[in-house]
Design a protein around this nucleic acid. Structure first.
Lengths: 208, 208
DNA sequence: GTTATTCTTTGACATTTGTCAAAGGATAGC
DNA sequence: GCTATCCTTTGACAAATGTCAAAGAATAAC
């Protein structure tokens, strides 16, 4: 169940040349043991759903109530400013989806999460997960790991903004997600990189 | 002890018009109760030290082993790239200091933490804190809160890079820390903002 | 106090990025 | 297929930022 998602999760398994191996393995081991004996409260917490393109998984100003895992589909985090929509991040298949900065602390999110395609997802209510977490401390470790990884990613992202040019940031994105340009509009990639549509278009023209 | 630090902590108490009140209060309450009955293992974990300017609290590539609280002094997080030193963040008095993206997950840090002045600090070993955390689940909640706040700050920082000009980012920094310019070198503020020294100098000249 | 060193500002110019407008392509609906 | 709409590219120019060099200011060492 949950352990399958962990084993599939691209972020946890591909992060930094598998440098999370040591951290993940005891969690997977523990989860397997847990799931061999867990009761219905545990298994009922997780369910599968299909939602259509455009669905808001989380709305700005609301507290995140659910955590998702993307099986098939594509999503994005975005924030709305007075001038523009800012795409903060993209969510690919085999990734957990949530605004942890909202759910972990139960504060209103300042970003939206939107499905960019019809999607198949796993979903768990935070209210139920929190109850499970009391019962199974291993879930606390898992949550901490997921949040910490996002902290690392965000930090690296900040460093990239501080030290790389727009073209370098674009190259880095393409390296990680070579096909993103076919999946996502130029305008969303541009806002992700912190540049205008036109600038991105010119960067792409140069790199050909 | 720890509860005093929490009550002093500027980040936790000043964050977003005190919007953390609901989250902090049960933790403070719980900690007070805990500290009324806690044993020496608890109190011995925290100690005060004075360290001199230039001390590295954490070195790039090492796993963070200690968490600090700044009583008096100033520190900064920075990363070293091939070209330059990048100041990721500044640490002011009454703030907790750590690379949570390292300590929370026990992965090597990719930033250094350096004291910019002689400083008075509280310090706790993560190895001891982790033992306490097992014993007192409240500390898990506290840790989660601290990490989540940093996640929010980082996320907001990314959005700022995506949507604000250098001058706007500078204004925002000055708003939060009006005196920072007298405490920190122009070069460090410039790298924090992701611009060159000269550009920052010109932005400052214009805003007079 | 003087000198040497480092940090900061300023100037001139190159490069990057943004803005506005128009053209070219892709897509959906009819 | 055709049209209308939206998205993307390109061009011309403006604004922002970077680079290099030099001057000015602050600081530390003597």
């Amino acid at each position: 169940m949950l352990v399958e998602l962990i084993e599939k999760c691209s972020l946890l398994n591909d992060y930094g040349n598998n440098s999370l191996r040591t951290q993940i393995e005891p969690i997977i081991k523990g989860l397997k043991k847990l799931e061999a004996t867990a009761d219905n409260d545990y298994f009922d917490a997780f369910s599968e759903i299909e939602l259509e393109k455009g669905t808001l998984l989380l709305r700005e100003g609301d507290v995140s109530r659910k955590m998702y895992f993307m099986d098939e589909g594509l999503a994005r985090h975005f924030a709305q400013t007075d001038k523009q929509e800012i795409t903060i991040d993209f969510c690919f298949p085999s990734e957990f989806i949530d605004a942890y900065d909202s759910s972990a602390i139960e504060l209103p999110s300042y970003s939206n999460i939107e499905l960019m395609t019809d999607s198949k997802l796993h979903v768990v209510d935070w209210s139920r997960f929190r109850i499970l977490r009391e019962k199974y401390p291993l879930l606390v470790d898992l949550e901490r790991m997921v949040i910490a990884i996002h902290l690392r990613l965000y930090k690296q992202r900040i460093i990239d903004f501080q030290s790389l040019t727009a073209a370098e940031r674009y190259s880095k994105l393409i390296e990680r997600h070579p096909y993103i340009i076919h999946l996502v509009s130029v305008s969303q990639i541009a806002s992700y990189l912190g540049i205008t549509i036109e600038t991105l278009s010119r960067i792409r023209a140069k790199q050909k």
